[in-house]
């Protein structure tokens, strides 16, 4: 195991019948990070999370949490995880507080934690109201309180802001920040909107159709999205050689050469250099992608 990894999957694949839902996914989630797990509908986010919780069975040697094989240390690993999958699971005939008390009973947790959790998610005022009568946002917060009750090191949240209004989203975001800053948790949070998690995550994984297409820090994602000069010529390899010889950081990416964009003047210089040495320049464009477009382009491959 690589040190500091809380979640690690090794070429994880999963099928529903003959549909390949996860295809060689290798997640790496470090301790203390907030990992945003992004992908459009049906990408395989919930499936990944269910695998991480051993709700869906996989072979040995594929999923490691806290450095241990999930299949061999199920109970020990699960005691370090709090989770919220899709809609929060809540008994609607019990009050919010009773829901927490029941979970505390089940997990042998001191009942003083119940009031702490109610406080933490701002539900103290509504503690004795039937959970079935809670608003969506309140249910979501109760779900998080349930997940946090046994003080897990890792919190796995599946679209916790789904269906919430802007205020609700901000509240959840603040709560998550607080958990990481004050309580040192590691958080794995899925979403289908980059903008929703962009401001709070430290790391990002982008999944589509079961393939992990990007994984890295938010800076690395920004780097991918820095403006580039995209050049197409008749002979990419020779052109790259020429450009590198002249001190440009040129790279070939499929059918274009990429150079970090500096200025218009700089672009013009590159063009004349290529023309001077008789390279045929087919196109020379500046690619500008914001993160959201980048995310879209990554997931539309």
């Amino acid at each position: 195991m690589k040190p500091g990894l809380i979640i690690e999957t090794r070429n994880l694949s999963y099928r529903f019948g003959n549909q390949l839902v996860l295809d060689q996914v290798s997640l790496n989630v470090r301790e203390g990070s907030i990992y945003g797990f992004l992908g459009p509908n049906g990408a395989g986010k919930t499936t990944t999370i269910k695998v991480l919780l051993n709700l869906l069975q996989t072979e040995k040697g594929k999923v490691f949490l806290f450095g241990k094989d999930l299949n061999k240390n199920r109970i020990e690993i699960l005691s370090g995880i709090g989770s919220l999958i899709e809609q929060p699971a809540i008994y609607s005939h019990l009050s919010g507080k009773e829901n927490l008390l029941n979970r505390a009973l089940l997990l042998h947790v001191n009942t003083t934690r119940v009031n702490e959790m109610l406080d933490l998610v701002n539900l103290t005022e509504h503690a004795n109201k039937k959970a079935g009568k809670y608003s969506l946002g309140m249910k979501q917060r109760l779900g998080i309180a349930l997940a946090l009750l046994h003080d897990p090191k890792l919190l796995i949240l599946d679209e916790p802001t789904n269906g919430l209004d802007p205020n609700g989203i901000i509240e959840i975001r603040q709560l998550i920040r607080k958990l990481v800053e004050e309580r040192g948790k590691t958080i794995f949070i899925s979403s289908h909107l980059l903008s929703e998690v962009e401001k709070m995550v430290t790391h990002i994984g982008i999944i589509n159709r079961g393939k992990l297409l990007f994984q890295g820090t938010i800076e690395e994602l920004h780097n991918v999205s820095k403006k580039h000069l995209e050049i197409q010529t008749n002979d990419l390899v020779r052109s790259r050689e020429l450009l590198c010889k002249n001190g440009y950081q040129a790279e070939i990416l499929s059918d274009t050469i990429l150079i970090p964009y500096l200025s218009e003047k700089h672009s013009a210089e590159i063009n004349s250099l290529l023309v001077k040495y008789d390279h045929k320049v087919y196109s020379l464009t500046v690619s500008k992608q914001n993160l959201e477009n980048l995310f879209l382009s990554i997931t539309q491959i």
Binding site: L53, L55, I75, S79, I81, S83, I85, E86, A89
Partner: peptide, 17 residues
């Protein structure tokens, strides 16, 4: 009670056998 609350997935992801 468990079906209605969609609780099975939650129950089976708790550290209980």
């Amino acid at each position: 009670i468990e079906h209605r609350a969609e609780m099975w997935k939650s129950l089976f992801s708790l550290p209980i056998h």
